[in-house]
Write a protein that binds this DNA or RNA. Structure first.
Lengths: 218, 218
DNA sequence: AATTATATTTAGACAAGACTAAAAATTTAT
DNA sequence: ATAAATTTTTAGTCTTGTCTAAATATAATT
């Protein structure tokens, strides 16, 4: 098994690969983990020896299949714990990240298997991000930014782009939570704000908000 | 906050103090943690600097009030997690220890508070050991070894002395679990075995078994 | 293409935690 | 009370993961 530190590096590389495809630079990893590039170089050599990544000097890194599966498993644990915290322990969705960051490193296959079952085999975490299955595969659902919907279109809120505390708390205040049906009643050309309806309530939201909310079109 | 290692030492000292009162030797700690006495000396100096224990060279250690409270808090977390694993995730009571050993180090006061509430504020873990409250106090219940009961006395099974896997699995097989009412029907002078009744079932158990089961007399 | 700027790696140092082997203190036994 | 046995500590080494500063490679600019 791997150390906490190794797991954190793996996870960072995994997330970066979802954004940039291949050849993740040591600098990018350093920035993500708030550490120094020299520390990354050290660790990257170790992960490479363990066959988790491909690393050639000055050319960045790429996860191997083994590395990808290992990283996905950590993300799986992270997101299952987030579901647990929100659904069972009444955490709000902006409080879960730091705790899940710790819980994801607990080693016990049975624990995760039972937790998964206890939670009813969820496919998405409280932020709408997909939970990898045991093989590391993600169930991708067709998602659109709320800002791309046209007048009179509607969809179900399935996730956020920006998951900062402030944003999540704002959504909570407005009663916008995962699973809620949102209908666009008006689009204001002037400032791109939207008038939306959610659970019989009508109010308007800014372009910025609408560009950070993922919707599954109905 | 403290490192995993520091917490493990604290917990070991805490448990040793329940058995021996004061002046825990470095050797005793080393044996408990399966490490070397020299490593213990190093760590003990550190814990002493942090005011968690009193340490005088060659004279063993004693927990300070602060150390005691800190250690009790780790034990509290360990036992709450054990309850969670058994009650919610269907672990059997011989499988929980290693996982709880990891979970006890998760840092989040809210997590423990909510977990406690989610579990219905349990006072004892699945082995019958008391769960310290937030202040580190234990609720002590009057417990007797099953082997000390007289003929026709009965009591509720509240814990075990030996918590080895083999023993716990044996108990499971016989249907002896926490909360069950046990009545002593016969005591055999020859080998000190007992004929007991539990949930309408009658069978005999050896002296060894009876000396490892705690009972709350009715 | 040469020079400057940026990114990456190397070399050497440090802290935490553990270990071995040797020294010192304490305890036990004669 | 002294010698022998045991316990505890010290000194020095190792590994993991991090860092700074210096060196080297790559990329960008003119």
């Amino acid at each position: 098994m791997f150390t906490f530190s190794e797991e954190n590096y793996l996870k960072a590389i995994y997330h970066l690969e979802r954004d940039f495809i291949k050849g993740i630079s040591t600098n990018a990893i350093a920035k993500k983990l708030e550490t120094k590039a020299s520390s990354v170089t050290d660790m990257v050599k170790k992960l490479s020896e363990k066959k988790l990544i491909i690393y050639k000097k000055y050319q960045g890194v790429t996860l191997t299949d083994f590395g990808k599966k290992t990283a996905a498993n950590i993300v799986r644990k992270h997101r299952l714990w987030e579901v647990f915290l929100v659904e069972k322990l009444n955490f709000s969705w902006d409080e879960v990240h730091d705790v899940a960051e710790q819980l994801e490193h607990i080693k016990s296959p049975k624990l995760i298997q039972q937790l998964d079952s206890f939670l009813g085999f969820p496919t998405h975490d409280p932020h709408g991000d997909p939970i990898p299955d045991k093989e590391g595969n993600l169930k991708i659902i067709e998602k659109s930014l709320l800002s791309t919907l046209l007048k009179n279109e509607s969809g179900i809120c399935i996730g956020v782009n920006d998951s900062s505390s402030e944003f999540l708390q704002f959504l909570d205040k407005k009663g916008i939570t995962l699973g809620k049906l949102i209908t666009v009643l008006e689009k204001e050309d002037f400032d791109d704000s939207l008038l939306i309806k959610i659970a019989q309530q009508k109010f308007s939201i800014s372009k910025k908000i609408a560009s950070n909310l993922y919707i599954q079109k109905q």
